[in-house]
Simulated scan of single mutants.
Amino acid sequence: MTQEPGAVVVGYDGSDEAAAAVRWAARHARAVNRRLHVVHCSLWPLLTRHLGPVPGVSGSGLEQSAQAVLEEGVAQAAAEVPGLQVRSTLLHGVPAQLLARVSRGEELLVVGSRGLGGFLGLLVGSVSLELAATAACPVAVIRQDLHPDGPVVAAVDASGSPTALEDACALATAWRAPLEVVHVQHQPPGRRRSDTQDSDSDARTILSSALAHARAAAPAIRIDGKILTDSSVPHAILQASAEARIVVVGSQGQGILRETMGSTAHAVLHHAQDPVLISRRGS
């Protein structure tokens, strides 16, 4: 039996940020020829048992309200991409935990930069931040789509970041967008350029290998590369992706949230103005 291709999953909670994520996800699902799965996570069952309608008031009740939010998300997707295949699911519980579970085996998880439970006073972006560290598939965190015609920017580290590079090539190919591969050569403050000959050579080797892999994976698109030098790796990536359609970074480490995502991805996710893809794989 042939396994059905993974879907593009998007979390929706009725916020403006989540609406932007749904619209982005709908366009991406069309570009990669995947189904769109809109998910709303209701926290109300954790807070009260009184979910039913108010007696004598048609359409009232917390469960009905949650269903209305979900239907609104589906309507947002349908308006953005008419005819797109969309399914919807209403779940009950903590959004980050539920969406991480839903992401297993899927193509992509898309969330807004904030929301998904923010009415309870959660920290700005806390759910998106947790999902970027725990989801079982790549996670796109959508902010403003300021440069829809910009390039895809992929940041590669000393390992060549093969997963991030693969995801960036797939995005650029689907969108028919140019790809810019960047590698940051870390230069601690006070270090002289004359002391960096060996690291210069290493950086060129890393970038050259990444470009060769990218051009083999995405032969139909324009691919450029650049070596950046900075005392802060995230700062250099953010500068290089200032006019990007999306910036793609890998996820590294294990343990608590920050280490699970990796410090560079953590910083880029916090400060990027445009959409960010955290390249993840999991079970």
Rank of each mutant, 00 (worst) to 15 (best):
G121Q: 05
T205L: 15
A240L: 04
R193K: 14
G83C: 08
L47V: 13
R23N: 11
D198W: 13
V139I: 05
S199M: 11
E17S: 07
A19R: 13
A265G: 13
G125S: 01
R281D: 12
G61L: 04
V8I: 04
L123Q: 14
R191V: 11
A66H: 07
A177C: 02
V139D: 03
S263A: 12
S42A: 10
S159I: 01
I256W: 15
G150T: 03
R23P: 01
R49W: 15
Q254R: 14
A203Y: 04
A75H: 15
G61S: 06
V248A: 10
A132V: 12
G225M: 01
V86D: 12
G59A: 09
D13A: 01
E130S: 13
S65V: 14
G83R: 08
L238P: 03
V8A: 03
G83Y: 07
L62R: 01
A78R: 15
R87G: 07
I142A: 04
V233L: 03
Q252D: 04
D224Q: 13
Q76N: 14
P95Q: 09
V248H: 12
P95V: 05
V141W: 00
H92V: 05
V181L: 03
A218W: 01
S58Q: 15
T2Y: 07
D13I: 06
V182T: 05
I221G: 06
S283F: 07
V127Y: 10
I246S: 03
